[in-house]
């Protein structure tokens, strides 16, 4: 394997995931954390759960967006260095789910930030989530090869 291929491969082999709970009922959060347990073990794909958006490549969001937390979500997204991928986990994050008609709910997270992968389910199974994260890692690789780097650092002020 040449050095160039190694570099290309490494883009999809090392996605670091930051998880943001955007007002979820906690069902999906538990399933996200279950991905790290010995049964599912997402670290075998090189995925690690980081707490710091500045270190992350993939943002996995659970729950609906509402008026209170839409700025926080946008902030977390802006703090991640490019290239980055967003995964909406659970039907709440995809479309608003059963909460979509609540008076304070905006809907799915794609109302606030661009979403690359939608993982359905209520709650989404860990298998489905790892599948979504794996897809996200492939998208990450594509973004590296396309080099679509938007300077989001500007919005940090």
């Amino acid at each position: 394997m040449g050095l160039k291929e190694f570099v290309k491969k490494s883009f999809s082999k090392s996605p670091w995931v930051v998880h943001y709970d955007c007002g979820s009922c906690n069902g999906c959060d538990i399933e996200v954390l279950a991905c790290m347990t010995p049964i599912y073990d997402m670290e075998r794909f090189g995925m690690v759960n980081v707490g710091n958006p500045k270190h992350a490549d993939i943002l996995i969001v659970t729950g609906t967006v509402n008026e209170k937390n839409k700025d926080v979500l946008k902030n977390v997204y802006d703090m991640m260095p490019d290239p980055k991928v967003v995964v909406a986990a659970g039907i709440c994050a995809c479309s608003g789910g059963i909460f979509r008609d609540c008076y304070n709910v905006l809907g799915g997270i794609d109302k606030v930030i661009p979403v690359d992968v939608y993982v359905p389910g209520c709650p989404a199974k860990p298998e489905a989530m790892i599948d979504g994260l794996y897809k996200a890692a492939q998208i990450l690789k594509e973004k590296y090869s396309r080099r679509e780097v938007i300077v989001s650092a500007k919005s940090l002020g």
């Binding site: 490494s10 090392s14 490549d57 780097v149």
Partner: peptide, 21 residues
């Protein structure tokens, strides 16, 4: 009791980090 990442994982991490924004 997990399967764990490949042994070359730290190199993947560093190469990826080097090419980030």
């Amino acid at each position: 009791g997990r399967y764990g990442p490949p042994v070359l994982q730290p190199f993947y991490d560093v190469v990826k980090l080097l090419s980030k924004e």
